[in-house]
Simulated assay, not measured.
Amino acid sequence: MKYLVMVQGSQADYEALKGQGSAQSPAWTEQDVQAMYAFMTAINDDLAETGEFVDGQGLAEPAKTRHVSLDADGKPVITDGPYGETKELLAGYWVLDCASLERVTEIAARVARCPQPAGAPEYPVVIRPIQDGAGDI
Score class of each variant (00 low, 15 high):
P117F: 05
Y14F: 11
Q57N: 15
A99H: 07
R113S: 08
K64H: 13
N44L: 12
A12S: 12
G133P: 02
K2S: 08
E88F: 05
P82R: 05
P26W: 01
D73S: 15
V126I: 13
G135K: 08
V68P: 09
M1P: 09
A109I: 04
Q131N: 08
E15F: 02
C114L: 06
K87L: 13
G119N: 03
S10L: 06
P76L: 15
S22R: 03
A109V: 06
A108W: 07
Q31V: 07
D55P: 02
D97G: 06
A91M: 09
E61Y: 00
D136K: 02
L96A: 03
Y3D: 09
Q31A: 13
V54G: 08
E106C: 05
T105Q: 07
P82D: 03
P117Y: 03
P76C: 14
C114T: 09
M1A: 11
A35W: 00
T105E: 03
A91T: 09
K75I: 10
S10M: 05
L59V: 13
L4T: 08
A23G: 14
E49R: 14
W28S: 04
L96F: 02
R128C: 06
G92Y: 08
W28M: 06
S25Y: 01
E30N: 04
T79Q: 15
T50Q: 09
A112F: 06
D13Q: 08
A134K: 04
T79S: 14
A38N: 14
P26K: 05
P26R: 02
A120Q: 01
L101W: 08
W94H: 07
E61W: 00
M40D: 02
E61T: 15
A120C: 04
P62M: 11
G51C: 11
V33N: 04
V68D: 13
K75V: 10
D97N: 14
V95T: 11
G9E: 07
A48V: 14
M1E: 09
A134V: 11
D132Y: 00
L4Y: 06
A23Y: 00
T29Y: 03
Q31R: 07
Q34E: 12
E49D: 13
F39C: 00
Q11H: 08
A27Q: 05
V111P: 00
K2E: 12
G133S: 12
D32Q: 06
D32H: 09
Q34G: 02
Q116W: 00
G84A: 15
Q131R: 04
G119Y: 04
D45S: 13
M6I: 12
P117Q: 10
R113G: 06
Q131I: 01
A16L: 02
G81A: 12
T65I: 11
S25W: 00
A63S: 15
D97A: 11
V95K: 06
R128Q: 06
R103N: 02
A42D: 15
L17D: 01
V68R: 13
T41Y: 12
L89H: 12
P117E: 10
E102M: 07
R103C: 03
L90M: 14
